[in-house]
Nucleic acid binder design. Structure first.
Lengths: 339, 339
DNA sequence: TTGTAGGCGTTATCAT
DNA sequence: ATGATAACGCCTACAA
């Protein structure tokens, strides 16, 4: 062994009892006398015994590790989701192993195919893929999988925000502020959450009798830079929009940056609404109207759900949808007083 | 077994050879014929064999897992460091297990004492603790530990930015802009990186013959809120500062928020410099002068170093210090044109 | 070059 | 209530 460690054998030897008794005492099973249990626990503490998870995993077929697969962690939303996951995992003595796909479908599939599934009791995933064989395969092997945020059509538990209603409210709000030429800048078409937000946008327009212009729906990436270039291309059309609903705050901010460059007054002359409620919304000028997502809650609930699936095989899968909340700030207010 | 899996036994049986030969072929050792190696590899691929890390770990005493212990992930700096770590870890087929201390010393110690060290080949840590027995104990057990960002006096490898020089430059810059009543808002006293930035600040003042006022050095927490309250308390003194060097961008931004509330013109009348170069620096108005940290590089180098320590026992420890760069923006420029 | 056997630390199945 | 003993999947002497 690399690092000398105390094992149940050491405890057994010192106490002159068998390893199986020690094992039982440590796991607090019913068939061990209170007396010896006490003795074992004391000795374990004295020797600073730490169970070997490899060995336990090998004999039990479980590892107390759960994998998190997601595009990035360098943004408010995902890092907060992970913090929520971590809280539950820690409380229940599970480790979380992080895999970053960098928003690459290829990378995601590579990661999942290389996954040493024997090392994972379950998986939490925010997928960036447009087909699902790789996830299906894992589920087929009996590994519980819970989707969060970016879900997919597979039969599995899912936790996400209410993308459709958030988008509907956001768009309706812009309309209520007197904007009528509302564009939508969004991500790739094949993401379900993206489709949901798009549908919310479309149905709001429809509901208020505003015609839909397909050239005002721009599918690119999720980054701030994409937001800037999206706006630029929108404003180069002959028919220019007077407001934007962005799929997330980052793109909204990218659009704002570009609007400022083009000397268009945000709020008064051009409405902007994002999605997520990144803390930056309150720091940027003007402050950004958005739909809040309960990132921490999503992480917490997804992890709790996964642990339940791990405990109980064949637990029926369920979908949890958390409501968002429209948070109105300056970027969408015609009457805003910008300092 | 919970999830049926292919083992080397299966491969051995199908090929009518022994498990040890399979094991050897899979690990590409010297004493196996090219022919059987080919056969084994083919069969392994055919059966979609995945090694069981628990078993491998148990017999070899290693796990291909490294632990990352750090205060938070919900900020630009730490999430970027992790991304750097992840890149290297992934390339070398290591998993990263995340532990969040929430900036609590108690929590950090609890985590480390509960750590099932048998499950970790090494540890990367950004400590928030002021004493080091818990880390010392782990190192004593022969587990390689590499510190990043927040280091400590223990004998171990460390990777961090040049806090002292960054702070010196930041403060000098404020002085060169004509600010002379420069306050420093920082974190707890017992952090080494905090001390280094404080010393850079102090020595810059000294170097330019500016008297030091201890009431202008405020030790609180690292959050944006702390930045706001720090500024508030500074401005309630009879002697008010005319500039602030903040230990990080978050506190600088908190200070800016408060300055705006008090209608003090940032840049012209009051200089602000932060530390980190969070992307938000370019989005806030006015844009924030700061010292850039190479977060991704720090993660990358720390992980590379750790892997070397894992490979080679008793590799002499070393300290890598990455230079920062002063990035001058509007918040520290008297001549700024704020839009 | 290949096979056999024992062990890694733990749990589970038998006995006792 | 406790103790042997065999497994879990893999690796590594040692033997052939």
């Amino acid at each position: 062994m690399l690092h000398q460690t105390i094992t149940i054998k050491d405890i057994a030897r010192e106490l002159n009892i068998s390893v199986s008794t020690v094992s039982r005492a440590l796991r607090d099973t019913f068939d061990v006398s209170l007396e010896t249990k006490q003795l074992v626990l004391e000795k374990a503490k004295e020797l600073n015994y730490k169970p070997n998870f490899n060995a336990r995993g090998l004999s039990q077929g479980k590892t107390n590790n759960i994998g998190i697969i997601l595009p990035f962690i360098t943004n408010y939303y995902f890092s907060t989701v992970i913090t929520g996951i971590q809280k539950i995992a820690y409380d229940f003595n599970y480790n979380i192993i992080l895999y970053l796909t960098n928003d690459s479908e290829e990378r995601e599939k590579l990661i999942m195919s290389n996954l040493t599934l024997s090392g994972l009791d379950g998986i939490l995933i925010s997928t960036c893929a447009s087909n699902y064989d790789h996830v299906h395969e894992v589920i087929g092997k009996g590994i519980p999988v819970v989707f969060f945020d970016r879900t997919n059509p597979l039969e599995a538990s899912k936790v996400r925000q209410d993308d459709y209603n958030g988008a509907f409210e956001a768009t309706s709000h812009l309309i209520s502020q007197g904007f009528s030429k509302i564009a939508h800048i969004t991500g790739p078409q094949d993401q379900i959450f993206t489709q949901n937000r798009l549908n919310g946008y479309l149905n709001a327009l429809e509901h208020y009798g505003i015609p839909i212009r397909s050239e005002w729906i721009v599918h690119t990436g999720f980054s701030q830079e994409c937001g800037s270039t999206d706006l630029q291309s929108l404003m180069s059309h002959c028919k220019k929009p007077d407001a934007i609903f962005a799929v997330n705050d980052r793109k909204a901010i990218g659009a704002m940056v570009q609007l400022k460059k083009e000397n268009i007054r945000i709020g008064q002359d051009f409405g902007v609404v994002g999605f997520t409620n990144d803390p930056i919304c309150t720091l940027i000028t003007p402050t950004l109207t958005t739909v809040s997502e309960s990132a921490f809650e999503i992480g917490r609930i997804a992890c709790e759900l996964l642990l339940k699936h791990i405990q109980k095989v064949n637990l029926p899968s369920k979908e949890v949808i958390l409501p968002g909340e429209l948070i109105i700030r300056e970027s969408s207010m015609r009457t805003t007083l910008v300092d």
